[in-house]
Design a protein around this nucleic acid. Sequence first.
RNA 1: UGGGGCGUCGCCAAGUGGUAAGGCACCGGCCUUUGGAGCCGGCAUUCGUAGGUUCGAAUCCUACCGCCCCAGCCA
Length: 570
Amino acid sequence: MNDERVTTDDARPAGDTSRQPKDFLRAMVERDLASGKYGGRVATRFPPEPNGYLHIGHAKAICVDFGIAEEYGGSCNLRFDDTNPTTEDPEFVDAIKGDIRWLGFDWAAERYASDYFPQLYDFAVELIERGLAYVDDLSESEIREYRGTVREPGRDSPYRERSVAENLDLFARMRAGEFEEGAKVLRGKIDMAHPNMKMRDPVLYRILKRSHYRSGDAWCVYPMYDHAHCLSDAIEDITHSMCTLEFENNRAIYDWILENTTVAEPRPEQTEFARLNLSYTVVSKRKLLELVEGGHVEGWDDPRMPTLAGMRRRGVTPSSIRRFCDDIGVAKANSVVDVAMLEHAIRDELNYNAPRVLAVLRPLKVVITNYPAGEVDWLDADYWPRDIEREGSRKIPFSRELWIEKTDFMEQPPKKFYRLGPGREVRLRYGYFIRCEEVIKNDGGEVVELRCTYDPETRGGQAPDGRKVRGTIHWVSAAHAIETEVRLYDRLFADPEPLAHDRDFKEFLNPDSLEVFAAKVEPSLAGAEPGSHFQFERHGYFFLDPVGSREGAQVWNRVVALRDSWARRS
RNA sequence: UGGGGCGUCGCCAAGUGGUAAGGCACCGGCCUUUGGAGCCGGCAUUCGUAGGUUCGAAUCCUACCGCCCCAGCCA
């Protein structure tokens, strides 16, 4: 529907964005549309609990819930599933809303399960009146015992056969605050021997004498997920209620409650899909919390975190996240997506959107011995390589003293090393050919300076005599360079599946996930806008960190490195 | 050894009885003032396994194997 949901700076030629083969969810929606099951309506919802930050796994769910509604002319509500006052906090609702908007989605309505507490309570009363729910006095541990195990049936609670009148009275008194927390719960009266554990008289309401961030002290009984979710869907006239695989067993309760309460038909239906797992990362609120609390990262928005806040801070674009979600598809098989897919989506976008500039991370001084001191030559440098049809260029200064990358020089270059070495010639990008004439070392034998000559005939990078050089390296004029901080971020974990071992996942943290450099960047970057993207040629895509940067003290985050076939083969 | 799901290339993932899409990754080659990008080519005689039905199966049947979820008054 809303094909115009624009991604501000995406200049890629409009390609075919439609997944050719439909995933099973879209196929289902199309079937329902064709059969007229919901009168042509598609209504979904994204139901986060405001107890933590959204991460890349949620992004997939958001793309499913909002994306499907959008594609089929439907609507998607944002519903905070806030039925547990002990864990929820309004701080998270704002963060969640911001993250969803950042991703480029908007909701038809903003709802809160807590706003439905009165209706939800009435539905519970209805179940009691129908003899389908009862107040149970068993303790928490007794309930567990009575539930049986996956192999053995449970036993009925001694309170299971209370009369409707007694249940009504007791439930009203629970609500009135007459009983202590844990003293009583309301349970669905289904079947204590049901093979599906979830159907063994699920708890519907518990007493929690806690004030809720929205409803305050209006309630001391709070509905459980199984009671609240399906009925909230029904209240909002949701048609397709999509959730992740771990709720498959809960679908039986979902249907049972809706079938046994007076909700409008056609009723919403739940369908499950596999949640996202990403290699080299963990996608679990609890695990991420552990990293934050253990000080392994600097916070929820640490650029190494797979949270949307972290990715935004790192410089990942929302459109590349959406593109990634499109690429991975939706299915029911548990899977671990290769993080290389995400990296590819990011590069693919930034390749078209990030102007190229020069930056030296590990500076090695080069003196051009045949270039006069004090002289400056301002060279033309295109912002875009020839294969990208965008206009724009800037001037970069060339002078006698330059910085080049330490790794672009080797005293004893191996076979296919195209860069600088004693006596070798390379091209300085947008500049001249230079030849290394002398290597200067300090007392420790470390190369600290190169003395080179340049060929004035090669200005711009071409030799009139047709001479070719294999290597082109980046550089920056020492007198003009800006000092900045460059943060190289890498995968947070060194193992593709940190959770797949018998050890603590934190043991697999990548010790090199962050490397900080005092880098020299070309002077044109002086006025760069915080939040803008550039490609530092031969390094990767960088983002001027709007949080970490200060006036005159830029902090550049590497979003993702360039593919590097040299590094791969060595 | 209960129930619910899932198993198609290293990783995702189409395919729903007519003879294995696509993407990522990888490997060649071309091109190249980013060892980037781009272009060309390669990459599952086989669909967890074993039987069976059929002219014909990844798709149907049977059995088996493997993995995930469920015993919170979390969601």
